[in-house]
């Protein structure tokens, strides 16, 4: 290998690398910017759905109806980590609190609804990366519904107990760390709430 030389080859290599990087980064950026609005809307939709579920209200299928309900009946507080829900169908105001805690693989954020007496109206998760098939089962509807009407502070009982005692939480078999994390999140929300409203 002589004339074209190592220098020319080097220039060609660098040029090719710069060119293909610009093409790839450009394509990804264009796609990102064009879908940005949709991604934001999806994130809002998740929060709205979570607030409605935590307030113990039946789910709404249409995103537009949900957005309308959210604007008319929900007041965000504390930098959108808590929400005051005044639904026309129910007389009593409710509060929905977003609270995070460490899970097995990452942060778990729960939306927990409370009525005026400090009883839980519902629980759902806006963020969790637990093991699918094990810890991720906290996202199944029964898990959030089991705490409705309870007031804690909670302790874990084996899965399947379906306890109705106000302080018992069914854990998930094979997901002890996740179950404990959820119990701690619930208890933290309940104790902060008790301090704020003696």
């Amino acid at each position: 290998m002589s004339p074209p030389g190592r220098f020319a080859q080097g220039i060609r290599t660098i040029g090719f690398m710069i060119g293909i990087t610009i093409v790839c980064v450009g394509a990804v950026s264009v796609l990102h910017v064009t879908t940005l609005q949709r991604v934001h809307d999806n994130a809002d939709l998740f929060v709205r759905r979570a607030v409605r579920t935590a307030a113990g209200l039946p789910p709404m299928e249409s995103a537009a109806a949900l957005a309308e309900w959210f604007t008319s009946s929900v007041t965000p507080m504390d930098n959108a980590t808590a929400f005051q829900v005044r639904d026309p169908d129910t007389t009593e105001p409710k509060r929905v609190i977003l609270h995070s805690g460490p899970g097995l693989w990452g942060r778990i954020t729960a939306a927990i609804g409370l009525d005026a007496e400090g009883r839980i109206t519902g629980m759902t998760f806006t963020e969790q990366n637990e093991t699918p098939g094990l810890g991720a089962r906290i996202a199944e509807p029964w898990f959030g519904e089991q705490v409705r009407g309870k007031s804690g502070p909670f302790r874990l009982v084996p899965e399947g107990t379906r306890s109705t005692a106000p302080d018992e939480l069914d854990g998930i078999t094979g997901a002890t760390i996740t179950s404990t994390a959820v119990r701690d999140i619930l208890n933290a929300v309940l104790s902060t709430d008790a301090k704020e409203q003696p």
Binding site: F16, M17, I20, T21, C24, A27, V28, L31, H32, T35, R38, V39, N42, L45, F46
Partner: peptide, 22 residues
Amino acid sequence: VEVLIIATYVIVVDILLKAYLP
């Protein structure tokens, strides 16, 4: 170059899922 091309397609899949199948 291979990794760059592969990564681009993977990010495309990820963005499309986030936008259309959240």
